[in-house]
Amino acid sequence: MKRGIALAACLLLAAMALGGAAWRRDRMRTLLLANYADELPADPALHAYAINIAQTAYAQHCASCHGADLQGDTRRGVPDLRHGTWLYDFGRVSDIERTVLYGIRSGNAKGRNTTDMPAMGISKRLTQDEIADVAAYVFSLSHKGGDAGAVARGAAIYQGKGECFDCHGADASGNIDWGVPSLTAGARLYGDTIADITTSIHDGRHGRCPAWIGVLDPATIRALAVMLHDAGSKGSQA
């Protein structure tokens, strides 16, 4: 009799523990989603919870392109997520969440689909010599030295015939509304050598990221946004 009651009590305690853990998990999930995304980094408990579930999801769904350590791949134009440099909007958690939700050139109408880098060489809008000059100019924006003549010619093409200023801005600072990169920062999505820049101008660029809405649950997507924001913030402070 006593053994039976003890066994039943153990079962009850186990059930309560299980229920309690589930309740806590559900509550954390609810809080993660119910709070305004940009305020999550300031909440240690929710931040830790988000990082915990995001790490597994990242390894399963993102690491194959972005790399196990978020390092990206310049050969394929996959961004280094540790950098704290964001193409779209301000790099807030809510901005990153939107990119994860709807993707980039993903076919989802809410995705980041506004612009492409045109193929200035393939389309023959610029000659090989002009492309070389523009590449020299773009390279000079973040590096010292180089052929002053080529840089000057490239600057004129940038502001004139090439119409590069139209998207990248007259001061080459980019445009976060359209996902147009700043050309004044050294690190570039597709590499930072003269050859990399030349290829980008000649062939154009059209990087993609899939839309994860409907594939991952909303809490996982938000957790990923928190994690990537976290990684970027650490990178930009370093």
Binding site: A9, L11, L12, A22, L33
Partner: peptide, 29 residues
């Protein structure tokens, strides 16, 4: 009684965590 309580706890857990469950409340996302 113990069985009923355990059932309620498990039922409650399943109710609030099962995929596709709908209720009157607005989902947090």
């Amino acid at each position: 009684a113990i069985g009923a309580i355990a059932g309620l706890v498990l039922g409650g857990y399943a109710l609030f965590t099962a995929g596709g469950t709908t209720g009157a409340a607005v989902p947090p996302e």
